[in-house]
Simulated scan of single mutants.
Amino acid sequence: MSIDPQSVTFGLDTFGDVTVDLAGEPVPAAQVIRDVVAQGELADAVGIDHFSVGEHHRPDFAISAPDMVLAGLASRTSRITLGTAVIVLSSDDPIRLYERFSTLDALSGGRAELTVGRGSFTESFPLFGFPLQDYETLFEEKLDLLSEVLTGEPVTWSGTTRAPLREQSVHPPMERRLPTWVAVGGSPASVVRAARHRLPLMLAIIGGAAERFAPYVDLFHQAGEKLGHGPLPVGVHSPGHLAADDRTARAQLAPHWIHNRNEIGRERGWGPSGIAEFEAEASHGALYVGGPETVAQKIARTITALGIDRFDLKYANGPMPHEQLMESIELYGTRVIPRVRELLAERPSLP
Rank of each mutant, 00 (worst) to 15 (best):
E279L: 11
E41S: 07
Q168F: 12
I258A: 11
W181S: 00
E277A: 15
P164C: 13
V295P: 08
L132S: 04
L114M: 01
G109A: 08
S102A: 15
I205E: 06
P173L: 08
G24S: 10
V184M: 10
G129T: 03
G224V: 09
G119V: 06
H241Q: 04
G110V: 05
I308K: 03
S158L: 07
G240H: 04
L70Y: 09
E55I: 02
G271K: 06
E281L: 03
P28Y: 04
R58F: 11
G224A: 11
I337D: 00
A204F: 00
A345I: 09
Q168C: 13
I95M: 14
M326E: 13
I63H: 01
E99G: 02
E123H: 12
T84F: 03
P272Y: 14
G185T: 07
E123M: 10
R76Q: 12
G159K: 11
R111Q: 14
K314P: 11
K298A: 11
S190Y: 05
A29Y: 04
S273L: 12
R198S: 10
I329F: 00
Y288A: 01
L73S: 03
R118P: 05
G274Y: 05
R198M: 09
G119Q: 11
R268V: 15
G24A: 05
P231L: 13
P239E: 02
A214H: 10
L82H: 01
S108N: 03
T81R: 15
L73T: 05
T9H: 15
A251N: 14
D246K: 03
T9I: 05
V234Y: 05
Q252Y: 12
Q133C: 10
A305S: 14
A71P: 09
E167H: 14
P94M: 06
R301I: 00
L199A: 06
I95D: 08
D17G: 14
G291F: 11
A62M: 01
L287I: 06
G54L: 01
I48F: 02
E41T: 03
P292S: 06
S75H: 13
V46Y: 09
E113Y: 15
A296R: 00
P154W: 14
G54E: 05
D4G: 08
R268T: 12
H171G: 07
D17F: 12
R193D: 00
E25C: 13
E277D: 15
